[in-house]
Amino acid sequence: MTTEITAYEKVKLARSSTRATTADYIKGVTDKFIELHGDRRFGDDSAVIGGIGTICGMPITVIGTEKGHDMGERMARKFGCASPEGYRKALRLVKQAEKFSRPVLFFVDIQGANPGAGAEERGIAEAIAENLYEFGAVKTPMLTIVIGEGGSGGALALSVADEIWMLENAYYSVIAPESCASILFKEPSRASEVAEYLKMTAPDLNGFGVVERIIGEPSDFTDDNAVAKFMSDLKVQIAEKFAQLKKTSVKKLVARRYDKYRRIGKYTEL
């Protein structure tokens, strides 16, 4: 376990190409997985992997953004920057999970939603909004694990859940520190300092009540044995959490989820 590293060093670790990606997690924590493609409207977004699988025998729906490891994979995965089709595929699969009472597991690792002209033309903002709107009231347990980058609205739209867990070196932020430094201080070089200001690390989010659990990570993601051990431990944690959430009535679950978000910056009592 690493300690005493700066927020910006964590941002760099979160972006490292050797880090486990969604595909690695799916392989590591599910017994079986069947990928399901497409938003049934326009296309299939290669930046978002979704499908059904089992975890310790329990059927679940898994959705996550995938960056890929090398340049070829990263290009094919559009660097994990989800497009409207990715968010709409996720919505379709979440609705399907609700229908069949399957818990939903999100893996978040995204720099930000696709900032392209086509994404705007196909309503990226509406696609994100729709997911926030729907996921808050989905009648099945939902768990999010931020495994790398939690980049703004693009991450948010694949992370509304009953609980959010974060890897110890992941980040979750309203804006990338470089962009924030550039906009507010006109100096992108101040990113490291701004990363501290933004309070974007796992302990920060845990302190705000946004993140429930911080997951210790292997010191080296290229160490196969360490990663295998990490994945099998995580698998047990996820299965236990879903088993626990499944015991709660869905009505209570949805009410609690509403309250969780409602409490973040609450000043008014009606």
Binding site: A129, L132, Y133, E134, G136, A137, S152, G153, L156, V160, Y172, S173, V174, I175, C180, I183, L184, Y197, L198, K199, M200, D204, L205, F208, V210, R257, Y258, Y261, R262, I264, G265
Partner: peptide, 26 residues
């Protein structure tokens, strides 16, 4: 957009307002 000076807490307001709109719609 979201107010970056309030960090991730401002980001979470997107969820808060959207689910409140959903409750109103429901």
């Amino acid at each position: 957009g979201a107010r970056m000076q309030e960090g991730v807490l401002s980001l979470m307001q997107m969820v808060k307002t959207s689910i409140a709109a959903k409750k109103h719609s429901d």
